[in-house]
């Protein structure tokens, strides 16, 4: 995933916090995926288990954790899986945003869609710019 678009995400666990450059994985329907080393460093709360479908179509039972995330200034508790060697941000984590990718730098920028909707409504209400 060398050329995949990336964003900065802050992760806050039970013991500590870290700021990571994460790959936006539109193929993943969940929240975030965190490597074991990072998960051990920040301390994550196991909340359950579930079956996940891997990219090759096979299923696997896995543990599910929660972690505090801050993406584009939006803080929330997000479900997380522990696997792999890079931090991934899935579709559930970027659901509040519109994602724009710079094809040259592969850097992604996020825009909060609900906020934009509110701003548009406010502008419309006060009769400002369209």
């Amino acid at each position: 995933m060398v050329d995949s678009p990336r964003i900065t995400v802050s992760l806050k666990g039970k013991f500590g916090a870290t700021r990571e450059t994460a790959i936006i994985d539109t193929g993943y329907t969940g929240g975030v995926v965190i490597p074991l080393e990072t998960a051990l460093k920040i301390g994550m709360d196991k909340v359950g288990e579930g079956i996940i479908e891997l990219a090759d179509g096979t299923n696997k039972t896995t543990e599910i954790f929660t972690v505090g995330t801050t993406i584009n200034g939006v803080e929330k508790d997000t479900t997380a899986l522990v696997m792999g060697n890079e931090v991934l941000v899935g579709m559930a984590a970027i659901q509040p945003f519109r994602v724009c990718v710079d094809g040259g730098t592969r850097k992604a920028t996020l825009e909060e869609t609900s906020q934009k909707r509110v701003m548009t409504m406010v502008r419309s209400f006060v009769g400002g710019e369209k």
Binding site: D25, T29, L54, G90
Partner: peptide, 8 residues
């Protein structure tokens, strides 16, 4: 059957 998928 699954909670999340990597094959979205």
């Amino acid at each position: 059957e699954t909670v999340f998928s990597f094959a979205n």
